[in-house]
């Protein structure tokens, strides 16, 4: 993953969250920097659905230690996690 792919990655993350996690809870929009845990979009099960999506679509392994609110709270933080993992 490179810096130039960022918009596409972010779009994919946002689209997955909107279609699979937000819409079923009646939430139609959210900002990229908005905490999706505070607004109820991502719950305990949603975290693992999100992790499965990231692992399957971006070929990364998200460790148990990385599954925390700091990394997964918003579209921006999820994107940052992917960028950080791609640099390792």
């Amino acid at each position: 993953m490179t810096e130039s792919t960022q918009p596409a990655v972010k779009d994919q993350i946002r689209e997955f969250i909107q279609e699979n996690l937000a819409s079923v809870k009646g939430i139609s929009s959210f900002r990229d920097d908005e905490s999706l845990m505070d607004n109820g979009v991502i719950d305990s099960l949603g975290i693992f659905r999100l992790v499965s999506f990231l692992e399957e679509n971006f070929g990364v392994r998200v460790s148990d230690e990385e599954i925390n609110p700091e990394n997964l709270k918003s579209v921006d933080s999820i994107e940052q996690l992917l960028i950080a993992k791609s640099k390792k």
Binding site: S44, I47, F48, D64, I67, N68, P69
Partner: peptide, 12 residues
């Protein structure tokens, strides 16, 4: 873990 990481620990 950290403050607030109980959910991750429990799910793990």
């Amino acid at each position: 873990g950290k403050e607030g990481s109980g959910q991750a620990i429990f799910t793990h």
